[in-house]
Amino acid sequence: MAQRPFFQSDQVKLSADLKAFEGRIGYKFAKPELLNRAVTHASMSSANRDDNQRLEFLGDRVLGLVMAEALLALDPGATEGQLAPRFNALVRKETCADVAREIDMGAVLKLGRSEMLSGGRRKQALLGDAIEAIIAAIYLDGGLEPAKDFILRQWGDRVKTVKQDARDAKTALQEWAQARGYPPPSYVQTDRQGPDHAPVFTISARIENGEQAVATAPSKRQAEQAAAKTLLAQLEKNS
């Protein structure tokens, strides 16, 4: 399907919920068609309605630029090897989805019936993509400075605390175990609840000396990291 130009004006009037959304994000669009497009999922696209996939592509790059610049300014002495995991922690899909939830992004998304029935408003990937589309819409509407302002406001203290957040708990736990002659930790899924579109995993992290910790999260990766972090903290406290 042919895509129309980013700046083509469709004389769009925003609905009440999108006007309220502008208030939540602290930005009023001069070209409201960009906001409409940013909240339109591919399941709702048609010949006369473009979805947000191209905006998502652009927004991902704008987010990356802003975060790279912020990290360089925050720690002028950091090496590339130190900056890379911090950058990844700030731009990964889980972080983007968390930001989207904080501004109730799911409530304004335009979804097809099948996507709505499968819980699309709560899906991590969908929310993460949508916040990137919003970033691109602001960038195209007002330029880099408003987009940068939006990103830094919404990401908030995440940038300042990213050194701690970027620490890979699974790697740190493995290093702890190996330094004491233990084999690598094991991760066992002990439970899974919720529907397929919104699962909740419970993972137990264990090491050979018998100590373990359990964590629950919407993805196995997050649950494993959380369990490893909890176990590492209790090991360090005990030692």
Rank of each mutant, 00 (worst) to 15 (best):
168 D>A: 09
94 E>W: 00
156 G>T: 04
31 K>Q: 02
92 R>T: 05
100 A>D: 12
83 L>Y: 03
163 K>G: 11
205 A>Y: 03
72 L>H: 13
85 P>E: 10
64 G>V: 11
173 L>T: 14
144 L>A: 03
216 T>C: 07
71 L>F: 07
19 K>I: 11
204 S>H: 11
76 P>M: 11
98 D>V: 05
123 K>E: 15
32 P>Q: 01
71 L>R: 08
222 Q>E: 15
81 G>S: 07
60 D>P: 05
8 Q>G: 01
213 A>P: 04
90 L>C: 02
131 I>S: 10
118 S>G: 06
215 A>C: 07
73 A>R: 11
113 R>Q: 14
147 A>C: 08
63 L>I: 15
125 A>T: 13
16 A>K: 13
133 A>H: 12
174 Q>Y: 01
180 R>W: 08
5 P>T: 09
162 V>T: 14
37 R>W: 01
216 T>H: 02
93 K>A: 03
155 W>R: 10
84 A>H: 14
224 E>N: 14
200 V>F: 02
164 Q>C: 08
55 L>Y: 12
56 E>C: 11
52 N>S: 13
114 S>Q: 08
72 L>E: 15
38 A>H: 10
140 L>D: 03
134 I>H: 02
145 E>A: 11
132 E>F: 04
45 S>P: 00
31 K>V: 01
237 K>H: 11
35 L>P: 12
98 D>I: 06
32 P>E: 01
142 G>C: 10
216 T>W: 00
238 N>C: 03
169 A>T: 14
79 T>D: 11
238 N>H: 10
136 A>D: 05
225 Q>C: 08
188 V>E: 05
62 V>P: 15
74 L>K: 15
200 V>T: 04
28 K>N: 07
29 F>S: 02
214 V>Y: 00
175 E>C: 05
166 A>T: 13
234 Q>G: 09
28 K>T: 14
127 L>E: 06
8 Q>R: 06
92 R>L: 01
29 F>E: 06
207 I>H: 06
31 K>F: 01
211 E>V: 13
196 D>F: 00
19 K>C: 06
20 A>W: 01
239 S>G: 10
126 L>T: 13
110 K>V: 13
198 A>P: 04
35 L>C: 08
143 G>W: 09
159 V>D: 01
147 A>N: 10
143 G>C: 11
138 I>Q: 04
153 R>A: 07
136 A>M: 07
133 A>E: 02
211 E>G: 00
147 A>Y: 03
232 L>V: 12
231 L>A: 12
168 D>R: 13
167 R>G: 12
202 T>L: 00
170 K>V: 14
158 R>S: 03
55 L>N: 08
41 H>A: 08
72 L>G: 10
89 A>I: 04
10 D>I: 04
34 L>T: 06
126 L>R: 15
164 Q>I: 14
160 K>R: 02
11 Q>G: 05
87 F>H: 09
219 S>W: 01
25 I>L: 03
18 L>S: 02
40 T>M: 01
1 M>P: 06
129 D>P: 09
199 P>T: 04
51 D>C: 08
172 A>T: 14
2 A>R: 03
66 V>K: 14
39 V>F: 05
206 R>Y: 04
5 P>M: 09
70 A>C: 13
53 Q>K: 14
50 D>K: 07
42 A>W: 00
100 A>K: 06
29 F>Y: 03
162 V>D: 01
159 V>L: 04
